[in-house]
C-alpha cells in the first residue's frame, strides 16, 4: 500500500535513491539491473518508461510526499517535448526546492 510518509528534508542523494526505488517498483528489478540509472537518465529515452508507467511513478511521489509537492501539476505545465526530455535530475531538483 502507498502511504503518506512524513519526511524530514531530504538531500539530493536521498531523493535520488528514493526515485530509483520508485522506478524499480514501477518497471521491475530485472529491467533496472540492466540500466545505469543516473540523474541524467531521461524517462522516455533512457529508462524507456511509457506514459502509464509515469502515471504510476507520479502516484508514488504523491503518496510519499502528500500535498507538499504538486508533482502532477508540475508535469502538466510541460509540453510534450519537455516531457520527453524530462530527466531524473530535473525531478530531484524540483522535489528538493519544494521541501
Amino acid at each position: 500500500m502507498d502511504t503518506i510518509v512524513s519526511t524530514t528534508k531530504m538531500n539530493s542523494d536521498e531523493i535520488f535513491d528514493l526515485m530509483k526505488q520508485f522506478i524499480t517498483e514501477v518497471i521491475g528489478e530485472e529491467f533496472v539491473e540492466e540500466m545505469d540509472i543516473t540523474p541524467e537518465s531521461s524517462f522516455t529515452k533512457d529508462l524507456e518508461m511509457d506514459s502509464i508507467e509515469i502515471v504510476s511513478f507520479s502516484e508514488k511521489i504523491k503518496a510519499h510526499f502528500g500535498n507538499e509537492i504538486d508533482f502532477t501539476g508540475w508535469l502538466s505545465s510541460m509540453d510534450l517535448d519537455q516531457l520527453i526530455n524530462l530527466n531524473l535530475g530535473m525531478i530531484i531538483n524540483y522535489i528538493h526546492e519544494c521541501q
Partner: peptide
C-alpha cells in the same frame, strides 16, 4: 491506450472546476 492520455494535461485543467474520474478499460493500462 490508457488513462494517461488525460492524466497529465486534460484532467488537471478540468479538475480546476470539476471532480474528474479516469479509468483504464479492461485489459488496458493497469
Amino acid at each position: 491506450s490508457n488513462l494517461s492520455v488525460y492524466y497529465f494535461n486534460i484532467a488537471p485543467i478540468l479538475a480546476e472546476n470539476f471532480h474528474v474520474v479516469m479509468y483504464d478499460l479492461k485489459s488496458h493500462g493497469m
